[in-house]
Design a binder for these strands. Structure first.
Ligand SMILES: [Zn+2]
Ligand SMILES: [Zn+2]
Ligand SMILES: [Zn+2]
Ligand SMILES: [Zn+2]
Lengths: 138, 138
DNA sequence: ATTGCATATGTTATGGTGTTACACAATAAA
DNA sequence: TTTATTGTGTAACACCATAACATATGCAAT
């Protein structure tokens, strides 16, 4: 598996920028169709225009897909490029997502899998719970 | 979050048994629609019949949903009832899934989240890679 | 037995998510 | 200019999941 660096990215195309900006402006994960709806006034009319932009942004490591939500977020952790496995903490109350890094998690999961003779290529780790802000408010 | 025991389950209904048996017989995760197709000869005709059975089986802890595949597997680990977080190792070559338990993983993820003032209620951990059998075959 | 309640079922229609196929445009080598 | 690569636009389709409504079944408590 290859870790990607966020430096020296090629300039994004128009559609890619529109989608990326939509995600960076959002305070919560967006589905592809939510992105589509938000960009209709900017000329985006079909799902494929969004999905193609997302594919590229995912490949560049600029956005991530949250499997448990069928949604996407902009990368928000500078350590992300140096790691293979990031953890997403999803608040069920306000829908905010924190992208967390952990030095030992990858080794931990790799060792667990190795005990079953399994070689890990990629990991999805998504936590559901309550964020600090929402816990304070409660 | 509540851990469930697999003992003393209520008897499954007809549809629940059909769906559960389909999953236990399968060698790989099944989508709801794949289950539906396999059960048409047994009188299952609509997606809801499958989804309702799956909801109950999920609640009983007899099956699990794999978020990254939009698919379902029968529980295959006896330690599952005693834990909140299980790990699914999905072979990208043969599609087999191993359900792994780890005593320390839950604490590990909890601590990582706590550093961000996040309280974990549930975790999704899905690994993609190559199983031992497929590695031997290669 | 009758009533009442909770759970399960059957069916239709609808909505949300993601891809295939094909045509065309822009960009960058060669 | 020719060629190859990448990006774009559109329509149609396939897959995943739920809403709404009607009916049936099992199991109390009277
Ligand atoms: Zn990231
Ligand atoms: Zn929150
Ligand atoms: Zn299990
Ligand atoms: Zn395999």
């Amino acid at each position: 598996m290859t870790a990607h660096s966020h430096t020296d990215q090629p300039a994004l195309t128009k559609n890619q920028s529109l989608v990326y900006d939509a995600l960076t402006d959002a305070k919560a994960p967006l589905s592809a169709y939510a992105i589509l709806d938000g960009l209709r006034e900017h000329g985006i009319r079909a799902p494929l225009q969004v999905y193609r932009a997302l594919d590229k942004l995912l490949e560049l490591g600029l956005v991530h897909r949250l499997e448990s939500l069928n949604s996407f977020v902009a990368c928000s952790n500078s350590e992300c490029g140096a790691r293979e496995t990031m953890v997403f903490a999803i608040c069920v109350k306000c829908n905010k997502v924190s992208e967390l890094a952990d030095d030992r998690l990858e080794a931990h999961l790799g060792a667990l899998a190795a005990a079953d003779h399994f070689t890990v290529h990629a990991a999805t780790v998504e936590l559901r719970g309550i964020c600090g802000q929402c816990r304070s408010d409660a």
